[in-house]
């Protein structure tokens, strides 16, 4: 009991520190100027001109948030469906897809969506949504299937309807694994979304791409650092919910 409590407090501590750091990075635009001047003396274009960092972060979070939300809902629905009696025949298919899908680099999914959906915000969200389904689906299926038979039998024998069994027993027991899947999916999305800028999705990928094209490392840092911090903050945030 002590150790669980201690771990929780430690997590909360790290989370708060990173959150403060992250907010500083986003909103303290003046600080960026000063620091970048010291790192890259003599360079004229230091601050990415087309948007403030906070605007970029918000754009980025929109892409990640929307795609992750869609992934989560879709993966949960598929995962629940294929573990029910009526969907059982689709279970091997879902298992295979989620296993094969994981071997695909996320960037490839992004690249593949362009020919079909063109450029911009929507195709990026769509590609991330498709890729984000996989870890959540796999964990949902595993979580629901790992529940031991005697617990399922007990729930049946007590006279629960299938829906009651699902919501009162199966999902709560599988939830740590499901949350872990959502966490992996979201973190991957934060990173992959930066590549979304190459197809015109906006977000923190924009200064990175601009920096690469104009050979300007100062721009690059303005995308990379907030993106990395965002991933850390979200990771620790999910940590707080896991037992």
């Amino acid at each position: 009991m002590m150790t669980v409590d201690k771990k929780r407090r430690l997590n909360l501590f790290f989370f708060s520190i990173l959150l403060v750091l992250f907010l500083l990075v986003i909103f303290y635009q003046k600080g960026w100027g000063g620091i970048l001047e010291k790192i890259f003396p003599g360079r004229e274009q230091l601050i990415y001109p087309r948007a403030t960092i906070s605007q970029l972060v918000i754009e980025h979070m929109k892409i990640v948030g929307l795609s992750s939300l869609l992934s989560t809902v879709t993966a949960l629905l598929i995962g629940i469906f294929v573990t029910r009696k009526m969907g059982r025949s689709f279970l091997p298919l879902a298992n295979n897809l989620s296993a094969v899908g994981q071997t695909f680099p996320p960037v490839a999914v992004l690249a593949l969506s362009v020919p079909f959906l063109g450029l911009g915000f929507e195709p990026a969200v769509f590609a991330l949504f498709i890729y984000g389904i996989l870890p959540i689906l796999r964990n949902t299926i595993n979580g629901l299937q790992d529940i031991s038979d005697d617990i399922i039998m007990a729930a049946d024998a007590m006279g629960m309807t299938p829906l009651q069994k699902l919501f009162r027993v199966e999902i709560p027991i599988a939830s740590p694994l499901i949350i872990a899947g959502i966490r992996v999916s979201v973190i991957i999305n934060v990173g992959t979304a930066t590549v979304g800028a190459t197809i015109g999705a906006g977000g923190l990928g924009s200064p990175i791409t601009a920096g690469l094209i104009s050979n300007n490392p100062a721009y690059l840092l303005q995308g990379a650092i907030p993106a990395a911090l965002l991933a850390f903050v979200l990771d620790l945030f999910f940590n707080l919910f896991e037992r």
């Binding site: 031991s148 005697d150 617990i151 039998m153 007990a154 729930a155 049946d156 024998a157 007590m158 006279g159 027993v169 709560p172 027991i173």
Partner: peptide
């Protein structure tokens, strides 16, 4: 089923 109690060897208490 709600009118029939059921006890098994492995108990099957809900762990959550």
């Amino acid at each position: 089923r709600r009118k029939i109690g059921y006890v098994i060897q492995t108990i099957g208490l809900f762990p959550h």
